[in-house]
Amino acid sequence: MARVRLAKKEDGLQPPQILEARERPPDHSVPDGPSMSRPIPRRVGRPVVVVSGCQKVYEGKTAALREVSMTVHAGEWVTIVGPSGSGKTTLLNIIGSLDQPSAGQVRVGGKDLARLDAADLADFRSRTVGFVFQRYYLIPYLSVEENVLLAQHFAGVDDPQAARTILRKLGLGHRLGHLPHQLSGGEQQRVCIARAVVNRPSVLLCDEPTGNLDGESSRKVFDAFRRLHARGTTIILVTHQEGYAAAGDRSIRLVDGRITDDGRSAPGRDGPASTP
């Protein structure tokens, strides 16, 4: 079956454990608990995301990606930084199969995305990758819980208990029945994260997840990423907030559609020293 094939471990994909971190008290400036501890040194896994010679030209004119090649290994947290218009979102969308490259190849979990048929592509989107959008894209007439259930639905899962557990762990236990417009930006972003991780994807793709949030909300969101990362989720995170760029294992810099720095020697994952 296609969905089994896509999630196989030989593909270098390691489904993360379910979120386990405790809900935090409002003031958690002092790093504490498993989520804030320095990572247990992990063996670098197999390549999960392999982008080779990827180009994207819009309407025959705008070259958003000129020639991008990069590899992300299982369990790695890679941040992509770069100036506005440098092609970060384009690259992330292509990795998540939300967009197609004009040239080049993208392999995720050993599968060439261009060769997946409609059914396999749907499986890939529902189970292998989770997308955290900058603009959340919550369905306005569905409650917080139902927005998360929606992602389960397409993965063929119906487990409201699991959805509620994840939302509680993201500090949204008291908001389950609320509609998106009744939530703050940070809360909406956490609903979006819950929806992205509810099917336990191997790769979490985040496009400026804290772009609209204040420092406190950003920290909560990053806490969630840290916990996911600690459980083995591969994270690719686009941000132009340099302070958060250092949160990952590695930072890739895009300028004008090209990778100018594939910072293998990025500093450790201390998290933001200060709010950018």
């Binding site: 998540g96 409609a118 749907a122 989107r125 189970r127 997308f131 369905i139 929606l150 639905h153």
Partner: peptide
Amino acid sequence: SEVGLLVALGARAPA
């Protein structure tokens, strides 16, 4: 945008 979201979440055409 709902169509886009559903597809991004893994919905197939019948869904």
